[in-house]
């Protein structure tokens, strides 16, 4: 019988990929932005058994977020980090969450994410993605950053890919721009790609052996 707090026996992970849950339970992932990318990546990571998330966002849930972000009508008007935390705890009450309802700045990266094993970039605007990757690589040159670029429009599924160099991994088509509009299926695909890369890095033998 499952007793809350005894994570290794949590029955929600019975169907997980063998050998992954134990490693993920020890891992901490930083998520910069809790919108279309961050909220959906967080859900995927919690379902996979991630131990701890550091969630950073300073926005309030708006009705226009509901076309792609993991929020509900009852969340409108609430801080995103608080609304998302409730949904993540509803999946796994044992997941540890650090909530930062702040506007992220390059200077704050080193302190906010000091305990993170890797970062998921989940901003909306390209210039923010750009400085976040730069600031992360300067603060933590040996830790991976997983970003998304080119997640807009609909269709064009085959153009989605993971492009990696060193500790930088970028998911998406690197072309489509949000002037095309944003569709849940495609944004969630990119978010799932980011989560999948994180899971791969955190469970690989050489990374956490």
């Amino acid at each position: 019988m499952y007793i809350p707090g005894m994570k290794g026996r949590n029955p929600i992970f019975e169907r997980n990929v063998p050998g992954t849950t134990e490693k993920l339970q020890k891992a901490t992932v930083g998520i910069a932005g809790c919108g279309g990318l961050g909220s959906n990546a967080a859900v995927a990571l919690v379902r996979a058994g991630i131990g701890r998330l550091i969630l950073v966002d300073h926005d309030i849930v708006e009705a226009s977020n509901l076309n792609r972000q993991h929020y509900f009508q009852t969340d409108i008007g609430k801080p995103k980090v608080e609304a998302l935390a409730a949904h993540l705890k509803a999946i796994n009450p044992d997941v540890e969450l650090t909530l930062q309802d702040v506007e992220l700045t390059p200077e704050a990266i080193a302190s906010i994410f000091v305990n993170a094993d890797l970062l998921i970039e989940a901003f909306d605007r390209a210039e923010l993605k750009h400085w976040l990757i730069q600031a992360w690589c300067l603060a933590f040159p040996d830790k991976p950053v997983i970003a998304a670029s080119g997640v807009s429009g609909c269709g064009n599924t085959g153009a989605m890919r993971v492009h990696s160099s060193g500790n930088i991994h970028v998911c998406g088509d690197e072309e489509s721009d949000m002037s095309m509009g944003l569709c849940a299926a495609r944004v969630m695909m990119a978010a799932s790609m980011e989560a999948n890369v994180a899971i791969e890095l955190l469970t690989s033998e050489d990374k956490r052996s």
């Binding site: 932005g33 909306d124 990757i133 072309e175 721009d177």
Partner: peptide, 12 residues
């Protein structure tokens, strides 16, 4: 050298 170029586009 191996050079990596990442184009960052809006959207998320």
């Amino acid at each position: 050298s191996n050079v990596g170029l990442f184009h960052l586009a809006h959207g998320g």
